[in-house]
Design a protein around this nucleic acid. Structure first.
Length: 848
RNA sequence: GCGGACGUGGUGGAAUCGGUAGACACAAGAGACUUAAAAUCUCUCGAUCGUAUGAUCAUGCGGGUUCGAGUCCCGCCGUCCGCACCA
């Protein structure tokens, strides 16, 4: 008897797959194609269990699709630009490029032993000159198509990373990466016109049926469509050029409840007033300063300053309202100005109470309700209310009806227009960093901003840069900026800003379809391989990456780089859960927590015998030391064990807890399967013969269940079925032929999860060719039905007995058999059944 | 505050359509083999009562629909996630 030796088996089969190029994606005329993609990693230098789980899931799908006769594209690359490389250069010296490529080499070496079905011939990194050169070409096409533009904008400035952040990259007033409080600065920046596609990006979400509802909803909220009325108040005593204030409201039905107008501290009118009124200037400065701090958001104290300016109510010009500058009004939403309706908005209510402004109801719960309010009355828009100061529609109507009526009324009377607004802003892509894709434009003192000529691409990053001072090294480079103006030929300067790294990841999936091409994509290849049939990654990319990619696919279609059919690039999306682990903690003599690696803890004790405190499982993180290095697991148990375990215990969308005992058990099981194969191989060919039919029936049932499990991302359930079938086979006394068929099928069903072991079993049993390319077994429907069925019998919904009857026994006969059962008779105790429900093949319920 | 998801044994979790709740695994316990250990194998394992056949209770709590509810509906409670001064 031999032993299961994964190290030897795995190396051997990986060598064979590589030699035979079985995972090379080839366009095929007579096979359906399948493109499976896991979100590509950032080359931090080490793979972690989260990567193992993510890529194993993709691998299961890819291998299953190969076996079911698809031409599969399953590529891998590196999201390689970005700040960690620069930070490393600043912290430990060295060069971001060397650091990044070194990490890529390390991670590739760590990843290959997993035995993933990746077409490594298509591998690229986004920091490859070839890739970012094509990205520059795309940028120029976008520019020509009017999809990119430059504007002066107030931007989010991250003072730690010394760069601009997109709104999407600011979380609670802090930079998404550095965590530093974001400041406001005015800079000239490049923007993608994503907001032009707000409606399209929103409306198309409905058709992404194979995306998680949660992700679609998050994108919907992010795009943030609202329908409202835009109109203007005419002003009294306002500075020149401000004879009106434009306002946007989603509740035009409350217009008669207006008691003030509020403008943002960044509103053009506020800026004019600021110039010659120190009081206004001080107030605005204060608002800006605290505008983004966390305390300001949490305490949310409503503050305002009366400008002295008055406006006329559009319905009654004799009715004048004061204009306040208010700290809670955002310049970048709507028009930066609102009308305050304290009766129906809690924020306005607090403001009005503080500054002693009137609170005027426009609707009440019912006709006889009291009009005095202790807080704003804000019912659901779908709830019918009584309009005591309505001006359009019925007296009793819902908010929604009243809003529609109010917009129509205002449009007919020339007061304003119904408009649809979106929360989604244009995507600012300029970054003041070195390690990114240079923006291919030139600044000429004569011609202004000029796009670089395509024949001058790629604009390559210079290698000789230093990171000894903050800011962008490209700005300080002695010669790199110098160039000739592409338009007039005079000496000019290159743009030194680089692109946001989200640009790099917004089209890599398209590049994989033709990775070596001298254009960004090749239409023929893109048309064949796109869309990604199954995309797999973390839910943390639910908004930014996926929204940007959807925009890019549209922009690439417009500029002729993708077919119309690929404007939604990801047909199906799966968001997988994390890998977690318990945290082991002790305290030092000052009471501070000290964490310990799992391998240093045995039975809740350290090597010196001291107890550790066990903190419940959480995402693996280096700082908490609750990490398990995949490399250690692979060397201890092999890749198949790691793969089997990360798939086995929890549903893929949920977190899975890594436990040493679970990994151990997975290894034991795989050893058992291997021994089983060994035993069957050594069987006397003529021996056995009991229960062949039962074994084969169980096998077909297992084929059915595992196939269903893989198709529906129920990998954990599929694995449970494989455990059960293995136990059945182990106990079987069937003939050698039946057992051989069973173990070969078992190997095939396991092959997407544990490909090396499966391949080895296949070879041992004399299977033809590779198991990887062998056709997936098909469950024989005739084998799934048994001659007899065991039916539970309920009396009044409670299970009392079981009968075994022929599967095709007519209902009446089943009923008769059920009522004749001893246990049923005992329970009935002479009572006469009122009704007997027979669900064929399922259950019998006797009602008394 | 708004929006969403989830809640099943000691633990992770199963349970196409509403049809035997707890598959499979971990942990725990018992046993076989062994001088012993490891490895391997076998058995028990939701709770209560009972020697047992079995009975009663049980899928967060309370109601409802149904012959039948973990699954559908209503109302609570709890946990997690996303968004948030959005006019």
């Amino acid at each position: 008897m031999t032993r299961y030796t994964p190290a030897e088996i795995e190396a051997r089969w990986q060598e064979v797959w590589s030699r035979d190029a079985v995972f090379e994606a080839v366009r095929s005329a007579d096979k359906p194609k399948y493109y499976v993609l896991e979100m590509f990693p950032y080359p931090s230098g080490r793979i972690h269990m989260g990567h193992v789980r993510n890529y194993t899931m993709g691998d299961v799908i890819a291998r299953y699709k190969i076996a079911t006769g698809h031409s599969v594209l399953h590529p891998m690359g590196w999201d390689a630009f970005g700040m960690p490389a620069e930070n490393a250069a600043m912290a430990i010296g060295g060069h971001p490029k060397d650091w990044t490529y070194g990490n890529i080499a390390d991670m590739r070496d760590q990843m290959k032993p997993l035995g993933l079905s990746i077409d490594w011939s298509r591998e690229f990194a986004t920091c490859d000159v070839d890739y970012y050169g094509q990205q520059q070409s795309l940028f120029l096409d976008f520019l020509e198509a009017g999809l990119v533009y430059r504007k002066n904008a107030v931007v989010n400035w991250d003072p730690v990373d010394m760069t601009v952040l997109a709104n999407e990259q600011v979380e609670q007033g802090r930079g998404w990466r550095s965590g530093a409080l974001v400041e406001r600065r005015e800079l000239t920046q490049w923007f993608f016109k994503i907001s032009d596609y707000s409606e399209d990006l929103l409306e198309a979400l409905d058709r992404l049926e194979n995306w998680p509802a949660k992700v679609r909803l998050m994108q919907e909220n992010w795009i943030g469509r609202s329908r409202g009325l835009q109109f203007a108040f005419s002003t009294i005593d306002a500075p020149d050029g401000h004879d009106r204030i434009d306002v946007y409201t989603t509740r035009p039905d409350t217009l008669l409840g207006a008691s003030f107008v509020g403008i943002s501290p960044d509103h053009p009118l506020a800026k004019v007033l600021e110039r010659d009124n120190p009081e206004v200037a001080a107030f605005c400065a204060e608002c800006r300063q605290i505008g983004t701090t966390e305390e300001a958001i949490e305490t949310a104290e409503k503050r305002g300053l009366d400008t002295g300016i008055r406006v006329r109510h559009p319905f009654d010009t004799a009715h004048e309202l004061p204009v306040y500058i208010a700290n809670f009004i955002l310049m970048d939403y709507g028009t930066g100005a609102i009308f305050g309706c304290p009766a129906h908005d809690q924020r306005d209510f607090e403001f009005a109470t503080k500054y002693d402004l009137p609170i005027i109801s426009t609707y009440l719960p019912s006709e006889d309700s009291d009009e005095t309010l202790s807080e704003a009355y804000v019912p659901a828009k779908t709830e019918p209310v009584f309009y005591n100061r309505g001006f359009a529609g019925e007296a009793h109507q819902t908010g929604l009806e009243a809003i529609d009526a109010a917009i129509e009324f205002c449009e007919q009377n020339g007061i304003g227009q119904g408009v649809t607004k979106y929360r989604l802003r244009d995507w600012g892509l300029s970054r003041q960093r070195y390690w990114g894709c240079p923006i291919p434009v030139v600044h000429c003192t004569v011609c202004g901003v000029v796009p670089e000529k395509k024949e001058n691409l790629p604009i390559e990053l210079p290698y000789d840069v230093s990171f000894d001072q903050p800011g962008n090294p490209l700005d300080r480079h002695p010669t790199w900026r110098d160039c000739d103006c592409p338009s007039c030929g005079r000496p000019a300067k290159r743009e030194t800003d680089t692109m946001d790294t989200f640009v790099d990841s917004s089209w890599y999936f398209a590049r994989f379809t033709a990775p070596g091409a001298d254009t960004p994509t090749v239409m023929e290849d893109a048309a064949y391989w796109m869309n990604v049939d199954q995309y797999i990654g973390g839910v943390e990319h639910a908004i930014l990456h996926l929204l940007y990619s959807r925009f890019f696919a549209r922009a690439m279609q417009i500029t002729g780089h993708l077919p119309q059919s690929a404007i939604e690039p990801f047909d199906a999306l799966f968001t997988q859960g994390m890998v977690t682990h318990e945290i082991y903690q002790t305290r030092d003599d000052k009471g501070r927590p000290v964490y310990h690696l799992p391998e240093d803890v045995t039975d809740g004790k350290l090597a010196d015998g001291s107890d550790v405190e066990i903190i419940p499982s959480a995402k693996m993180s280096k700082s908490k030391k609750n990490v398990v290095d995949p490399i250690n697991i692979i060397s201890a148990y092999g890749a198949d064990t790691a793969r089997w375990f990360v798939l086995s215990d929890s549903p893929p969308e949920r977190d899975v807890e890594w436990t040493a005992s679970g990994a151990e058990a997975a290894f034991k099981h795989l050893s058992r399967v291997w021994n089983l194969c060994d035993r069957i191989g050594a069987m006397d060919k003529g021996s056995g013969g009991q229960g062949d039919a039962e074994l084969l029936r169980a096998m077909h049932l297992c084929i059915h269940d595992v196939t269903m499990g893989i198709e529906s991302f129920g990998f954990n359930a599929a694995i449970a079925k494989l455990y059960a079938f293995t136990a059945t086979l182990q106990k079987s006394k069937a003939s050698h032929a039946a057992q051989r068929e069973a173990v070969m099928t078992l190997a095939q069903l396991m092959s997407p999860m544990t490909p090396h072991l499966a391949e080895d079993i296949w070879a041992h049993q004399g299977g033809e060719g590779l198991i990887t390319t062998a056709p997936w077994p098909v469950a024989d429907a005739a084998m799934l039905v048994s001659d007899t069925v065991t039916l539970p019998i309920q009396v009044n919904g409670k299970r009392r007995a079981e009968i075994t009857v022929p599967a095709d026994l007519p209902k009446e006969e089943v009923e008769k058999a059920a009522l004749a059962d001893q246990a049923v008779l005992r329970t009935l105790d002479g009572a006469v059944p009122k009704k007997v429900i027979v669900v064929p093949g399922r259950i019998v319920n006797v009602v008394v």
